[in-house]
Amino acid sequence: MKSFRYYILLLPALLLSMSVVLIPGLLTAYISFTDWNGVSPQINWIGLGNFRAIFADNVFWKALGNNIRWTILFVTVPVFIGMLSAVLLLGRRINATLYQLIYLFPYVLAPITNALLWLNIIFNPLTGVIGFLRKIGLNVPAPLGNINTALYAVAAVDIWHYWGFLTVVYLASLRQTPMDQVEAAQAEGANGWQVFRYVYFPSILPTVLLMYVMIIIFSFLTFDYVYLLTGGGPAHATEMLSTYAYTLGFSTFQVGRASAVGLVMSMFGLIAAAFYTWLSRREITE
């Protein structure tokens, strides 16, 4: 009887989430087995046809490869910058908060603002820094225009906006390391690196792992910056699963196929979520 009351308290959250995420999600799963074009009242079951089609499409594999390259970039570059700055901030008594604030500025701004300011003021050959450098005689290539650099150029903007977040999270975690352990290690003559390696690092390891899982999940879902900066081009050089699905759904009337891509994307999400659950199992069962 008592427990019934608590179910009611859960109800708003579950109802909302299920009606917006779960039920449409299941509908999408159904659509992915049909030839629906998003318009027609006719919906025909075609079994695994959409999956066969996307697996036979080079662009799909290109996009998947880009998602993986994106993931590798994100689990290295921002993690390194974030960790370095967090460790450096840990030693500062004054201004640490100020630096954290500044580092977070790009993180709190809208992707659309960030993307457009980079496009217009950095990359633009007319009004941007790139254009200015050329005008004074430097032969600067166009980062977004080259298929070998486009992915890195887009990732650079996204990393620029993201790394400050990691700084703050790592710093908070570093600060939770018991001071007596740090002092004990220093008393025994450990140098800065040794203190980090043997005292701080084990202490923040759960946080680092957790952030890795989050980064991987979001790397497979990444959409905003790619869509706004290149739309997946040039020549699919920055195509992601998300932009691929978006084009299929909104440009070529292949909603069934787009749904199949969405389903594949959520499979990756599911794997990551399973890993996340496994990581936080201690907390779940505490």
Partner: peptide, 9 residues
């Protein structure tokens, strides 16, 4: 972890 693309349509 569910992508927006999965339930948008």
């Amino acid at each position: 972890t569910i992508p927006i693309q999965l339930f948008l349509f």
